[in-house]
């Protein structure tokens, strides 16, 4: 297990290099002169040249990349063009808001998704199964900004139970989390159902029944743990999707998260912020996938890579 973890960790290195490289090249691939952009549209020739010199843009690309990675590792992602504050400071506070939003939404997806999936699988082809699966299909095909708007319309405006926007109080969390978590819950429910149905017909389930195990334990002890193996992969991917999907939800609910920061930064052509945010999100995604792989290995004893 330890060797596996270490090896898996080492395997993330090339991925990280790739991510930083792409983010780094972003600066150079966007149309226009980065120095001009950073110095501002009204800057004169000399100021642009100074900026170029200060940012090391005259150095060969590999050297620039080295500097970029070196700085990033020490927590220096440059300064925001608009506010002039360090990118890490700008992102810092708002990053945690987004992580919180994604985390609660994932928890909600897992909770609802698993229960719905198990119920569906154990009562296969019953009316309840049909209802759950049709609901899941809705959840999956509904754009989440629309769902968000509908929730606001009803719960915030019509019956006034919950606030329209913001983040922080327990009440304000509810609607955004539902908005963001619904699609994930639907995916996990469908995945759990099909995975359970596959597992429930395995020979070892028959063995458990032949042992006299109660049906409840057959489902929750013998079947579920095996059925979870493919579901875990989906959960990991889902978390990444949520980080990205947070952009819309944050906009709809006016939450000061990373997603909204990125949208604003793009509008204001604040490229260091965009660069920093994309880098952080990508690394977060790599990290989550690492955790997924480790837990996958923990659930599935048959992966014997060490």
């Amino acid at each position: 297990m330890f060797i596996y973890t270490v090896r898996r960790l080492i395997q993330t290195i090339p991925v990280m290099i790739g991510v930083t490289l792409v983010v780094f090249l972003m600066m150079h691939l966007i149309p226009g002169d980065p120095a001009q952009i950073i110095a501002g549209e009204s800057a004169n020739e000399q100021q642009v040249e100074q900026t170029r010199e200060r940012l090391g843009l005259n150095d060969p690309l590999p050297v620039q990349y080295g500097t970029f990675v070196g700085n990033a590792v020490t927590g220096d992602l440059g300064n925001s063009i608009r506010s002039g504050r360090a990118v890490t400071d700008e992102i810092g506070a708002r990053f945690w808001v987004t992580v919180e939003l994604a985390f609660y939404s994932t928890l909600l997806s897992i909770f609802i998704g698993l229960i719905a999936g198990i119920v569906s699988a154990t009562r296969r082809n019953s009316p309840l199964d049909m209802i759950i699966m049709i609901t899941a299909l809705f959840g999956l095909s509904m754009p989440n900004f629309w769902l968000g708007l509908m929730l606001i319309q009803y719960f915030a405006l019509n019956i006034e139970w919950l606030p329209v926007s913001g983040w922080g109080t327990p009440q304000s969390i509810i609607l955004p989390v539902i908005t963001l978590g619904t699609a994930g819950a639907a995916i996990i429910a469908r995945m759990t159902r099909s995975s359970m149905l596959e597992v429930i017909h395995q020979d070892y389930i028959r063995t458990a029944r032949a042992k006299g195990v109660k049906e409840r334990y057959v489902v929750y002890k013998h079947a579920l743990r095996n059925a979870l193996i493919p579901v875990v992969t989906v959960v990991g991917l889902q978390f990444g999707v949520l980080l990205g999907g947070a952009v819309l939800t944050e906009t709809v609910f006016a939450i000061n998260g990373l997603g909204r920061l990125v949208v604003e930064a793009i509008g204001q052509r604040d490229f260091p912020i965009v660069q920093g945010a994309v880098l952080i999100l990508a690394l977060m995604f790599v990290f989550v996938n690492f955790i997924v792989d480790i837990s996958y290995r923990f659930l599935n004893k048959r992966i014997d890579l060490d």
């Binding site: 020979d203 070892y204 458990a208 029944r209 042992k211 743990r225 095996n226 599935n300």
Partner: peptide, 21 residues
């Protein structure tokens, strides 16, 4: 209460008849 207690059963495929986890 009878299964696995008074009457037990073994199956053909030892590979798949045991729970892998």
């Amino acid at each position: 209460r009878i299964r696995g207690n008074k009457i037990s059963m073994i199956f053909q495929e030892p590979m798949t008849s045991l729970n892998p986890v």
